[in-house]
Nucleic acid binder design. Structure first.
Length: 560
RNA sequence: GUGCCUGUAGCUCAGUGGAUAGAGCGUCUGCCUACGGAGCAGAAAGUCGGGGGUUCGAAUCCCUCCAGGCACGCCA
């Protein structure tokens, strides 16, 4: 397109103006072609010509290409393109040749990307809310791989804080309980006590393992035991939905390596640090409290537009969460990734801003870091929201939801929404309609392909030596949809919107089923040469469907 | 109160400044002597939360109001 505009300018068909980026996209209505652009309308002003004349000039200067069929210019100035039918038929062989690597792009060739997601501390089983970030992150990673990136999946966690100490203490109480020792379970108002049933199970196992030998131990070994068990559980739950991480990064290593203190020094050298009891821009209320507090170390985040400065080191000498968070992101950048993606729940969105300010304050390139903030998952049952509680037998753990539906359904449900959209997970619907949801519609398309090949094998029909030029219009319609996959991957990666693949999958299945209904392979009316060609087509279709399912981390079943 | 997110068909949600706003589910009407009917063909169903503005053109960008969610600690 841009070449055509330049060519038109150079021979005087169009006046001189800066050639803009041109959007070409499949239009909503099929009669408007396979791809269309309204670029001429946008150029009307700089070119000082009417849009139809511009569109005509561009169309006349388009460089020849074998994949372009008809080009038409339509009032008020749209240019509509149609793919060349023979080129499209030939794509059948191309799709089969590419196989499971179908539409692997070179966007990220030679580049390394890292996706950090889930990152839940091992204090309890993973819930559906966190799993949403898990599915988004893993799908993003799969899409980045398809775009050509070398991808690392990372899980960041902290086991040194109060949260895990409380888990250790809670397990210790349950352990003593399991041994029949006199103990008192803290009441509901004590939020430091973890009430989940799983700690009772852990305690029983531990008691069986070590007997009474731990009765005089403090919380520490209990914490370590719980941590080990919890991580094994979380990893196993994630594995059920085909999520795994390459690197588990312990925040503690940033303390051990003194990395956090180096970051603090660097910020200080750059003038972003001061020590005071209250922030420099404190309001009246805070001034009143000044006497009660010792001196803390502050980060001048207000220089970056933050509403207030942030404490990095408390008056007790202990760092807040913010300091290691900044150090962690510096660490990621130091590891030389070209692209860093961080999948966070909405409840961590504000904290991320401060990290971004910290990275900028260090003089590092914050533009390599991209955050996908996903909104909360609301669990709904009987039309009402509920908060999950394993103890009370109300399900919101990933395991529970998988058990009630399926791993594939969970992946699809959690993926098929814009991350910005609040997600209502209706348990009744997920359970009751598990056979009616889009997951099965998509997978069924793949199953139907598999069915054809089973039947073809029985009847001794093969696609060897097929002539794809025999394929008809219904098949071409489906191939046009397949050809959009590359653009879907590119957009999902460039916009950090992995949910796009889920909607594409539905469209692909939607394009498939009518063809299946209409285009028979193993029927007496179908001449052998045509049957071969059609079988070849279904082989390509199956590959495209499987590729799409794989990108979503879903299985491509042969039977249902 | 401030910041971020959301508001589109009965429900759950897509939608890139473009042409007549889409899908799944639900509802209604047809289609099983053809490779799996978990399917196909079709229909009904919309003040794109309200109001202004920018633009040749707005669900999309800007302002404002309304409604809902999340976050706003020397917690982690």
């Amino acid at each position: 397109m841009q070449d055509a505009i330049r060519a038109a300018q150079s021979d005087g068909s169009l006046p001189a103006f800066d050639v803009p980026a041109v959007d070409i996209a499949p239009p909503k209505r099929p009669e408007h072609g396979d791809y269309a652009t309204g670029a001429a309308m946008a150029l009307a002003k700089p070119a000082k010509l009417n849009p139809f004349a511009i569109a005509t000039a561009i169309a006349n200067h388009l460089p020849p290409a074998d994949f372009i069929g008809a080009v038409e210019v339509v009032h008020p100035g749209f240019i509509n393109f149609r793919l060349n039918d023979d080129w499209l038929r030939a794509q059948t062989e191309q799709i089969i040749a590419e196989g499971d690597a179908l539409f692997t792009l070179d966007l990220g060739a030679g580049k390394r990307a890292q996706v950090e997601f889930v990152s839940a501390n091992p204090s309890g089983p993973i819930n559906v809310g966190r799993s949403r970030g898990g599915v988004i992150g893993d799908t993003m990673a799969r899409l980045l791989e398809a775009a050509g990136y070398q991808v690392e999946r990372e899980y960041y966690f902290n086991t040194a804080g109060r949260q895990m100490r409380n888990v250790g203490n809670s397990l210790r109480i349950r352990y003593l309980e399991a041994l029949g020792k006199p103990i008192t379970i803290p009441d509901e108002s004590d939020e430091s006590f973890y009430r989940g049933d799983y700690l009772i199970d852990f305690a029983r196992d531990l008691a069986a393992e070590v007997g009474e030998s731990w009765v005089d131990h403090d919380w520490q070994p209990f914490k370590e035991y719980a941590e080990k068990r919890m991580f094994a559980w979380i990893r196993a739950s994630l594995e059920r939905v085909r999520i795994h991480h390459d690197v588990f990064f312990n925040e503690n290593t940033l303390y051990e390596s003194r990395a956090i203190w180096e970051v603090l020094e660097a910020l200080e050298e750059r003038g972003f640090i001061y020590r005071a009891a209250i922030p420099e821009n404190a309001d009246v209320d805070e001034r009143d409290e000044a006497d009660d507090k010792g001196e803390a170390v502050w980060f001048r985040s207000t220089r970056f537009g933050d509403s207030k400065d942030r404490v990095l080191v408390k008056s007790s000498g202990e760092p807040t969460y913010t300091l290691p968070d900044i150090a962690y992101h510096k660490n990621k950048l130091d590891r030389g990734f070209d692209l860093l993606i961080n999948v966070l729940g909405a409840d961590h969105g504000a904290q991320y801003k401060v990290v971004q300010y910290g990275i900028s304050a260090l003089g590092l390139d914050a533009s390599k870091i991209h955050v996908i903030i996903n909104q909360m998952v609301r669990m709904v049952r009987d039309g009402k929201e509920f908060k999950g509680s394993t103890r009370r037998g109300i399900y919101d753990t990933l395991d529970d939801v998988i058990d009630m539906t399926s791993a594939d359904a969970v992946r699809y449900f959690l993926l098929a929404r814009s991350p910005d959209s609040h997600l209502n997970f209706d348990l009744d619907l997920a359970v009751r309609q598990s056979n009616e949801n889009p997951v099965y519609y998509i997978q069924y398309a793949h199953v139907r392909c598999a069915g054809i090949f089973r039947e073809a094998a029985l009847r001794g029909v093969s696609d060897e030596g097929a002539d794809v030029r025999l394929l008809g219009e219904p098949e071409l319609k489906f191939l046009r949809k397949v050809m959009e996959l590359g653009e879907v991957i590119a957009q999902a990666v460039e916009l950090y919107e992995p949910h796009r693949i889920a909607f594409y999958a539905l469209e692909l299945a939607n394009a498939f089923h009518p063809v299946f209904d209409q285009v028979r392979v193993l029927h007496s009316d179908v001449p052998p040469a045509l049957a071969k060609a059609r079988l070849r087509f279904y082989r390509a279709a199956q590959i495209a469907l499987r590729r799409t399912l794989n990108l979503m981390g879903m299985s491509a079943p042969e039977h249902m």
